[in-house]
Nucleic acid binder design. Structure first.
Lengths: 154, 154
DNA sequence: CAATATTGCTCAGTATACTGACTATCAGTA
DNA sequence: TACTGATAGTCAGTATACTGAGCAATATTG
């Protein structure tokens, strides 16, 4: 019988599991307390000042119901500000704080180290191949999850 | 600046997200209600009758605190039996029920379809390459997560 | 412009994952 | 055999993800 551990779905889960563990370990070693999800959100807020939650969710492929809690925690940590939009009173505008900017800068080496560590079993060429193939598979399946990636507004 | 969406950690998360969505959609279309995690656990219990929870967790790389809830749900659905071991009173022996066996058989086509769909953007060669590279990266990082894969007892 | 549809966000509920702690039990050893 | 350490399982707490529902506000349309 075919080994269940060899199915793409299982490999996906396992690789993600390792990636998160490596990220958290490196970031903690660097003296910070930030999850991969929080990091991506924070970096995206910095790159797109004043964006609303739905746009942010689309830019990093998070569910809109997930982003609420993520931002709650970023706000609670003092890394992000959330305020009502004046143009659309349903929306919240997000801004990174000085503290958030500082954290993002300081944490970057750990984040980059983590990316290397999670690929440490591969040669440079293999790592590039893996990322290319993942990108391709993800692009083809983008619309299949509830939280697809939505490119910048144009 | 480097796009955060292009980091291996983000690709891992995104691919896993799509894989789970595809799995759930296919299984639901087939008329079943089983998560990828529950499926893997059930299949492993069937292949290793009477195994205990820690061994099961090791075989599919789940955390031991996660497996408790997964088995709770399999038992509640009538697919698995959990009973105290006579040899070691700390341990629980797991068995698949007839209903579990029937479900596993009936669900297989949907599971296989899901694996194809999550790779649908890739050629056969690319799909094989992706899986080979994932296996290699995972093997190198196995010990980095709290729930590493533990091969069969030997 | 009134009725309708859509959108931004939140909430309640469920299912992984993990941290850390705790109980019960087992195994090894002085 | 009493002591010590390790192991099996559970529990409480936190953080993603997602389903489905709902509210408030905006957009669309007849």
């Amino acid at each position: 019988m075919k080994d269940n551990n060899d199915m793409p779905g299982h490999l996906a889960r396992r690789f993600q599991q390792i990636a998160v563990a490596v990220f958290l370990a490196e970031v903690e070693d660097a003296g910070f307390d930030l999850t991969p999800v929080q990091y991506a959100a924070l970096a995206t807020i910095k790159a797109n000042p004043g964006l609303d939650q739905v746009t942010l969710a689309g830019l990093i492929a998070y569910d809109r119901t997930t982003i609420t809690g993520v931002i709650d925690r970023l706000v609670q940590k003092g890394l992000t500000e959330r305020r009502a939009s004046s143009r659309d009173r349903r929306a919240r505008e997000l801004e990174i704080t000085d503290e958030g900017r500082k954290t993002l800068r300081a944490i970057t080496p750990a984040v980059e180290a983590a990316q290397r560590i999670m690929l440490r079993g591969l040669t440079d060429k293999e790592a590039n191949d893996l990322m290319r193939l993942l990108r391709k598979a993800i692009a083809a399946g983008n619309e299949l999850s509830r939280a697809p990636l939505r490119e910048g507004s144009t």
